[in-house]
């Protein structure tokens, strides 16, 4: 026991004060600069002027799917139609898209070549458009995103409010 004590007193005493000062400085810096950012993501859309999906004529091109979203008087969603056929909800829209493009994925697959043209009423609330784009562009299966159609375009806006 006595031997141990004498060993302890031989230990070099480190001055901790500057280190603790710096550490606290760093901590307060990180605490003050902390900005809580909600996770956000993008839907990429490439839309050059004057080229609506139907105007592009290409042998490789699959005819575009036209999705019509109509609005009620208060901007809520009143109806969905795909290529003129009415659709009950976004889940059904997604099922139809899946059955159209099949299971193939990759650079030359049907899902890659197909285009969707969105035709929305002026007053429609934007959240509905994002829900439609979500339904068209992919599904989440077991936490993994399965991509469907990536090429999404809008028809030119209609005048009037």
């Amino acid at each position: 026991m006595a031997h141990k004590k004498s060993q302890l007193s031989d230990k070099i005493d480190i001055n901790m004060t500057p280190m603790i000062d710096v550490v606290f400085q760093l901590m307060s810096f990180f605490m003050c600069t902390l900005k809580i950012v909600a996770p956000e993501g993008d839907f990429d859309i490439r839309m050059p002027l004057g080229k609506s999906a139907s105007a592009v004529v290409d042998d490789q091109q699959v005819p575009p799917i036209r999705v019509k979203l109509s609005a009620g008087p208060d901007g809520s969603l009143a109806g969905i139609a795909m290529n003129g056929n009415p659709i009950a909800d976004f889940n059904e829209l997604q099922r139809k898209v899946v059955s159209l493009v099949g299971k193939g994925r990759g650079p030359d697959s049907l899902a890659d070549k197909t285009e969707v043209e969105m035709d929305c009423d002026y007053g429609l609330k934007y959240a509905n458009v994002v829900r439609a784009i979500t339904a068209i562009s992919g599904t989440v299966q077991d936490g993994q995103i399965v991509e469907l159609i990536k090429k999404i375009k809008f028809t030119p806006p209609k005048a009037g409010k």
Partner: peptide, 12 residues
């Protein structure tokens, strides 16, 4: 989310 789609399209 409550903005009008037409206005988004106008911006585009």
């Amino acid at each position: 989310g409550a903005a009008k789609t037409g206005e988004v399209q106008d911006i585009i």
